[in-house]
Computed example of a mutant assay.
Amino acid sequence: MSDSSDPGGAADPAPPPVRKIIHIDMDAFYASVEQRDNPDLRGKPVAVGGSRERGVVAAASYEARKFGVRSAMPSVTAKRKCPELIFVKPRFDAYRAISQQIRDIFADYTPLIEPLSLDEAYLDVTQNLKGIPSATQIAEEIRARIRAETQLTASAGVSYNKFLAKLASDHNKPDGLFVITPRMGAAFVESLPVGRFHGIGPATAAKMNRLGIETGADLRERTLPFLQQHFGKTGHFYYWIARGVDERPVRPDRIRKSVGAEDTFAADLFTLEEAQAEVEKVADKVWRYCEKHSIRGRTVTLKVKYADFQQITRSRTQQMPLASAADLLGIAFELLAGVFPTPKGIRLLGVTLSSLEGAAERDDENGTGETGARQLTLTL
């Protein structure tokens, strides 16, 4: 906990009852599914998504990661790092089906499940359906059942809050389990580089580094006013996680804030007509999802990525939720027209609908301690 004598800090809250939180993270999920279903891929460097020339890597097997291949890496870069890399087309229907299998396992232990994506989730097992007092035992049982029922491996982190459970699940990957007890929490955080913290991305980590904040210990030395001055409302979150404190509950009912679709093209687009044809496809994908889930939104965002990987976005917000696919497409076309004539080829286009109403989907964890928004990205 913090030193209450810190003149610029904040008084520590009364210690809440110790919770038992598990973070389950499937190991290289998409790539592992492909290797499971195709024995010829086992033991080989595999990248799901993209292609040898275009696109980006959606997931990489551990064999590929040894060469420095990572998700979101341009395919051409991944191939340069690993010439033997095998690209596999993603099968999201298969991944979703397996993800549901895994969530069904979770539901045998607790109803308090907060999915972050298809391959990871938080579980609150403080009060669990099996009456098991040990969260570590529950995590071990879940991992064993995942292996037996899906032939896949999962890593687990166990701790007294979400932030530390997430850190713990990364500690012994792949196929590992790590526990951070209340007595270990603050010291564990102090030793880590801030770039390892969930909720602190590369840009924020770089900013912290410029301010002399390299580790959790450095972060803990900064006062709450200092962090709020430099990082706004998330400064409060950073102040407390540096002390191993995170009071966010596991929330199974968080609402998704945006729905989007995008596509990367085999050849760059240069004309408005070509771009309109592609935008129509992604906008249709978004609207069909919204229709299926009775979702409406007010803000349309167009995403454009050029051949040199420069990326821009353009948005427009309406006073009332969009009523039809034609409304969505019309605004997307107007935003698209604003980027033409294009100075260079376009490799990717995306359309997102946000400011949603009536959304029934789960939202992702944003890691900042604030109620956050995640974009559901639909695959074409």
Rank of each mutant, 00 (worst) to 15 (best):
S5T: 10
S5L: 15
P7G: 02
G9F: 01
A10D: 03
A11I: 14
P13C: 12
V18T: 07
I24W: 00
A31H: 02
V33T: 03
V33R: 00
V33D: 00
D40H: 11
L41E: 03
L41A: 02
G43T: 11
K44P: 04
K44V: 10
V48Q: 05
E53Q: 09
R54Y: 01
G55F: 11
A58Q: 07
A60F: 05
S61H: 08
E63I: 13
R65N: 05
G68W: 04
K79A: 13
K79Q: 14
R80C: 01
R80H: 07
K81W: 08
Y95V: 15
I98C: 04
Q100G: 01
Q100H: 05
Q100S: 06
F106H: 02
F106T: 02
A107E: 07
T110W: 02
L123F: 04
L123S: 05
V125Y: 03
K130D: 05
K130Q: 12
I132V: 09
I132C: 05
Q137F: 11
E140S: 13
E141F: 07
A144R: 15
R147V: 10
R147H: 10
T150P: 11
Q151D: 15
G157V: 15
S169K: 07
K173Q: 12
P174S: 10
G176P: 06
P182T: 09
G185K: 06
G185Q: 09
A186D: 07
S191D: 12
R196Y: 03
R196K: 15
H198Q: 05
I200C: 09
T204N: 11
A205M: 08
A205L: 15
A205S: 14
L211N: 04
I213H: 02
E214N: 06
T215G: 11
G216F: 01
L219P: 02
R220S: 10
E221V: 06
L224C: 08
L227T: 00
L227K: 00
Q228R: 13
Q228K: 13
Q229S: 09
H230Q: 12
F231K: 08
F231H: 03
T234C: 00
F237Y: 13
W240S: 12
I241E: 03
I241L: 12
R243S: 07
V245R: 10
R248Y: 00
P252T: 01
A266S: 10
E278V: 08
K281V: 15
R288Q: 14
Y289E: 15
C290Q: 02
K292R: 12
H293I: 01
S294M: 04
I295P: 01
R296D: 08
R298N: 05
T299A: 05
T301D: 08
L302C: 09
L302S: 06
F309T: 09
R316A: 14
Q319P: 06
Q319W: 04
M320N: 02
M320A: 06
D327V: 03
I331F: 06
L335W: 03
L336S: 09
A337Q: 13
G338S: 13
V339A: 07
V339D: 03
T342G: 07
S354L: 08
D364I: 13
E370Y: 04
E370D: 14
T371Y: 02
A373M: 15
A373T: 12
L376M: 11
T379R: 14
